[in-house]
Simulated assay, not measured.
Amino acid sequence: MDFPQIYADFYAKFPIAYLVTDRERWIYANERAVQLLKEESVADLIDKPVYQCLPGACELFSGNPVDFPLEFREKWLSKNGESIYLKFTGIPLVENPNYIQFFVNEIKRMEEEFSDLLEEMAAWLAHEILNPLTSVKGFLELMQRPDGENREMYINIAKKEIEQIEQIVSQCILLRRPIQNKALTDLNRLMNETVSQLSGQGYFEKVHIAVSAIGPVEFYCEGSLIKEVFRNLLMNAIEAKATKIYVQISAKEKGIDIKIADNGNGGAKSRWKKPGGSLNGRKGRWGGFGSLIINRIITGHDGKIFFHKEKEAGSIVHIQLPHTFPPENLPGERKE
């Protein structure tokens, strides 16, 4: 079935950008879409693979049922290399549910959102640093008492609080330092090591975790940073009171796919923004400063990360990474 002409005629002069996909490629775009996406003509969009320019719509290609409306934000790279920040809202066509129509709006409030993010970061840092500092100060005052009881215990607790501050400062540094010390690394091994470390610390006592790994999946990366991403995502599931976590890492033709699914507290609405969106710095389960760190690491490796909220409870985090390998004949490369 072709795209109905009645829709094409109706949306041709529509004031909102309107795109239609058959879940593989773009099959229709109105004039406003061409203007908004800064393309030269409709022909520049038609037949273009959707997954290449719209990773946020990855659910459409999974073969699994999709909850509509499908809403997400995406950075669109125009033909002239300009980045445009857009909000996409997709719903199926009544006559043919395999056709998905997207209404597209440009995000006008990026500066305001960035200001909100800075405010949130300041509050987060004040909370995360002032709390341990207050504890250290309190234990030092207790140690000054003449009786001097429990001095060893107070010292150990103060050390742990100082280590927490060090970890926070180290994470802040990640936001600006370049990705370096890359090596060809097996991601399945990194995930298994992360799970083992968290298990050794007692985090998985009441959680069943299954890692689906068939052979090595090699990626050219800074392994310690990718492991930090894995650790943060698993800890987030634990903090959401998940009792089951399922991890799958696989190499596909288009790149590397990483999915982390959990049955945690997806019912807490304050934890979530719109399903299908990219991780960002807004409040919620995936909001705040921690998500900035994760985004920085993944985008620094030319990847993308998305979250999907399940209807009742739980979530799926989807990471897409490109196939990358060490430059040939470059001395000093190593395999982790």
Rank of each mutant, 00 (worst) to 15 (best):
R145H: 03
K13I: 04
L175F: 09
D262Y: 10
R73M: 06
D44I: 07
N64C: 09
D302C: 05
H308A: 07
F306S: 02
S278V: 11
I168R: 06
P65S: 13
R109V: 12
A17L: 12
M191S: 08
D44N: 14
E82K: 13
I226L: 14
D186Q: 00
V169A: 09
L118W: 14
S278E: 09
I100M: 08
F307W: 15
K309G: 05
Q180H: 12
P49T: 06
I6H: 07
T194D: 06
I319N: 12
S250Q: 07
E239Y: 12
K244C: 04
Q320N: 05
S83M: 03
E113F: 05
T324C: 02
I157V: 15
V94I: 04
P4A: 06
S291R: 06
S291H: 05
L70F: 12
N96I: 01
R109I: 13
N295Y: 03
I91C: 10
N295M: 11
A57C: 09
E310T: 01
F325Q: 09
K241E: 14
G63T: 07
F68Q: 12
E228L: 11
A261T: 08
G290S: 15
D257G: 01
K48L: 10
L125Q: 08
Q171T: 04
I214C: 00
A126S: 04
G215C: 00
A123W: 05
I319Y: 14
I298K: 08
L86N: 02
K13F: 09
G148D: 12
A122D: 00
C172A: 08
N150P: 00
L77M: 15
N105Q: 14
L118E: 15
G281Q: 11
S224P: 02
E59R: 11
G138I: 00
E40F: 07
F72L: 04
K311V: 11
E310N: 14
V195N: 02
G202S: 03
W286D: 06
N150E: 11
I168E: 07
E82W: 02
N131K: 10
G56R: 09
S212P: 00
K259S: 05
D147A: 11
L187C: 03
K137Q: 11
S196M: 13
Y7T: 01
I129S: 03
E328F: 07
A268K: 10
G81H: 01
L125R: 03
P216D: 00
E128T: 14
Q144T: 05
G300R: 13
E74N: 12
V50C: 03
V211G: 04
Q35L: 13
P92Q: 10
I256K: 08
S41I: 01
I316G: 11
F139P: 01
K304E: 10
L174W: 09
Y85I: 08
V94E: 14
N98S: 11
E152W: 02
V66L: 11
W286N: 08
K273Q: 15
V136M: 15
P132F: 06
E218L: 05
T89P: 02
E239H: 10
G255E: 04
A183E: 03
I256G: 13
I16S: 03
I129F: 09
K311E: 13
A237P: 03
S199K: 08
L330V: 05
W286I: 08
I84W: 09
L321A: 15
A123Q: 11
I179D: 03
V94A: 15
M235L: 15
N131S: 15
G223I: 03
K48H: 10
P65N: 06
I162Y: 02
